[in-house]
């Protein structure tokens, strides 16, 4: 497969698509460590192994973030795997560097979300308890 057969998408059009009624699914395939340093807001860590990746059936646009210098073989493996689940696969043109260069926001992925019963925090009961500044912890 030749390079022209992949479809690339610019950071700006991804940012526009993300605020459209049908935002794309963003997959970061650069590996856990690089992902943890910062990624496109909301991107999913897909690991580095296309064959070990199993998506739910989809239909919309999907944007892949690949490592600098990714080979055509790798691009093809990801594209074929994801297209076979119904996604319209595109590759972020210029990778994450281009996203940064465009001045777009970056997410440092956080882990650990509060789960009921697992923290000292309790669920409030009132429907609206605003305007109690002294109680808010920023």
């Amino acid at each position: 497969m030749a390079e022209q057969e992949f479809s690339y998408v610019s950071p700006d059009s991804v940012a526009d698509a993300l605020v459209s009624p049908a935002p794309p699914l963003i997959l970061d395939a650069r590996g856990r460590d690089i992902y943890a340093e910062g990624t496109v807001p909301g991107a999913v860590n897909a690991g580095r192994d296309p064959k070990g990746f199993l998506p739910s059936k989809g239909s919309g646009q999907l944007v892949l973030i690949l490592k600098k210098g990714a080979t055509s073989y790798l691009k093809r493996s990801w594209s074929e795997r994801l297209s076979s689940y119904g996604y319209k696969v595109t590759i972020l043109n210029g990778g994450f560097d281009a996203w940064l260069a465009a001045g777009l926001p970056v997410e440092i992925p956080a882990s650990g979300h509060i789960k009921p019963g697992s923290t000292p925090y309790i669920i409030p009961r009132g429907l609206c308890e605003t305007n109690t500044p002294a109680q808010v912890r920023e």
């Binding site: 897909a46 990746f53 998506p55």
Partner: peptide, 9 residues
């Protein structure tokens, strides 16, 4: 939107 996926880690 909600998506599910499984990755190999």
């Amino acid at each position: 939107l909600l998506h599910l996926a499984v990755r190999n880690d």
